[in-house]
């Protein structure tokens, strides 16, 4: 398999009053080309920080301590600002969380799209850009005649989200990153966004990397899933393995903790305990204080990744030292 994005041994820390907060702890992750990969985790597990590190948009108190982020063969962490600017949006487009607020309120959608295009390229005339934008707006199920001349406040949340998705595609990126694309939207609007993303993927084969806490959404759209907990990747596998045959105890319990509209609810239960504080993470495996299958080694040594059937899992259940 070809990988479009490879994260290697990445460590990210925040300087806070109480000390150094290690939010991404030695994370390695490969995003395969032409597929939809999802990074799933609860709030505070470090998934947004990982994304910020990949895009180099960490806040001033955030530091990348070590590691590499390779886009094709380019290490994004070594690029100058100007080189990075060229890759962002042209090669890697991003739809941020609450992207509804990312549109400039004093620009019409049309001007916003044209301006974005012209900031990166000058090969098309304004008319050609608008034509291209219209096609993309149709792809995200918006009526160009209605939307192009509109200001953001005239559009609903779901429409703005779809405008942003269309805008992210205007430069034909090779990778589309989506940070919580469905949060803060209503059920029906959410499913429209998912449909739109599925359609884009089907028609163009665009590689997508999705960061979310919403497992039902992931079940519908992702090919591969990486599960993150307390700054660590716990398990990586294809979607069916994660939902039907997960190997890591955290993944198994997390799947059981989601309520559903369908089926028996008696086996649904919360995970006992609470996520650890990252200032003072537990020794050994970060999940061991909540894990029902804990062994003596779990609080002493951090588990490496083991390959178990279709899954790659960091858990001592599947190997010895």
């Amino acid at each position: 398999m070809d990988y479009i994005l490879r994260v290697k041994d990445l460590v990210v820390e925040y300087a806070v009053r109480e000390g150094m907060l290690r939010v991404v702890n030695n994370v390695s992750l490969d995003v395969p080309e032409g597929k939809i990969t999802a990074l799933v985790g609860e709030s505070g597990c470090g998934k947004s920080s990982l994304l910020d590190a990949i895009l180099r948009t960490l806040p001033p108190n955030g530091y990348i301590r070590s590691g590499e982020v390779l886009f094709r063969d380019i290490n994004l962490l070594k690029l100058s600002k100007e080189e990075l600017r060229k890759i962002r949006w042209e090669k890697i487009a991003i739809v941020f969380q609450a992207a509804q607020n990312a549109l400039n309120p004093v620009l019409k959608v049309e001007d916003h799209i044209v301006e974005t295009y012209q900031a990166h390229r000058s090969d098309l005339s304004k008319g050609e850009i608008v034509e291209k934008a219209s096609k993309l707006l149709e792809m995200v199920r918006l009526d160009p005649a209605q939307v192009l001349g509109a200001y953001p406040h005239e559009l609903s949340g779901g429409m703005k989200q779809r405008v942003i998705i269309a805008l992210s595609l205007i430069l034909d990126p090779e990778l589309l990153i989506l940070d919580e694309p469905t949060s803060a939207l209503d059920t029906y609007t959410q499913s429209t966004i998912i449909d739109v993303l599925k359609r884009i993927h089907r028609e163009s084969g665009l590689t997508m990397f999705l960061v979310t806490h919403d497992l039902p959404v992931v079940a519908e759209i992702a090919d591969y899933i990486a599960v993150m907990y307390a700054g660590k990747i716990m398990e990586v596998a294809d979607v069916e393995t994660i939902f039907y045959n997960a190997k890591h105890p955290y993944t198994q319990l997390l799947i059981k903790a989601i309520p559903s509209l369908v089926g028996d609810l008696s086996d649904r239960k919360p995970i006992p305990g609470n996520p650890p504080s990252l200032l003072n993470p537990p020794p050994g495996c970060v999940f061991h204080p909540r894990c029902p299958y804990r062994k003596p080694i779990c609080d002493k040594k951090e588990p490496p990744f083991f390959r178990v059937e279709n899954s790659i899992t960091a858990c001592w259940l599947y190997g010895e030292e």
Binding site: Q190, P216, S260
Partner: peptide
């Protein structure tokens, strides 16, 4: 109801 996401890939 028909749009609600369901945490089961086969159904979803």
């Amino acid at each position: 109801l028909s749009a609600s996401p369901i945490p089961d890939p086969k159904i979803a």
